[in-house]
Amino acid sequence: MIELSELVKIYRVPVKSPGLWASVRSVFSREYTEVRAVDGISFTVEPGERVGFLGPNGAGKTTTLKMLTGLLHPTSGSCSVAGHRPRERAPEFLRDVTLVMGQKQQLLWDLPPTETFLLNRALFDLDRREWQDTVDELVELLDLAEVVNRPARNLSLGQRMRCELVAALLHRPRVLFLDEPTIGLDVKVQQQVRRFVRTYNERHGATVLLTSHDMDDVAALVDRIILIDKGRVRFDGGLRDFSERYGAGRRITVRGGLSVLGPLGFTAAEAGTCSATVPADEVNPLLQAVLARLPSADVSVNDPPLEDVLARAFGEQT
């Protein structure tokens, strides 16, 4: 469904030394530097897959998404989405994809979201009945019946974002590019958005490529992670493989007992617990040591939180 082969995007960015004289000089002669935002990325995503496309700020995630949606032209390499070359912006291609950007909006600011839905019906050339069915389905799934007739400028951020999702999915795209879709939303709306994306994926078999800095999004939505940094793919595999590779072992959590377990390497964790993360082959000896000191301890062993895994993965890359 999505194929990238040695995709490269180089930006030409002006550079200027500090100071007034440098500013005056830059008016007449400007120096440029080349920034390789995407530096030879290759991967394939199968139909119906939900993939997390992760990386630190400036890693090249959004640039890649914009090349995959035809907004930016690659400097070299190739990509295809749903059998189309995105840069050609064929109407059939644009009917097959959507891009949801958490930080930008397409809703008509002064009008109710229903007006944007109507406009998109004309722009996507949708059959009136199918369009109405889709609106009804999405509005119900996202619990928006009360708000779609109020001007967008009077809606809360969470309501607007949910309406953005409706506007972005009215044409029932087969490929969803989601660029930080839950940024700035409260926990309840984040969960609602995640549930919705999952339902849409399962109901319509849509392919989802998600970028997010919120690891709850990743844990709830994706089965596979592609990690990029400095424009190159650093990891491509399942969520569990990712945790094992970068998680550096398992996390042992004990309720209370920090004063006793401190010498064993435990540190205070959330809600009155303490925890230690150790390599997998050290879990059993440490558990025995814990139980020797606290025979009735309430102990659990888990994978470390995804945030920690990702922070570690980013740390190794940079």
């Binding site: 109407p91 059939e92 007006e115 944007t116 109507l118 406009l119 004309a122 050339d125």
Partner: peptide, 28 residues
Amino acid sequence: MVRRGPGRAAQVAGGLLAASLATALQYR
């Protein structure tokens, strides 16, 4: 299949003009 041609252009222009007129009339 997305239609092409003058009819399609009229459909697009009509949708956009209706929205822009509705926006313009918001601010008396």
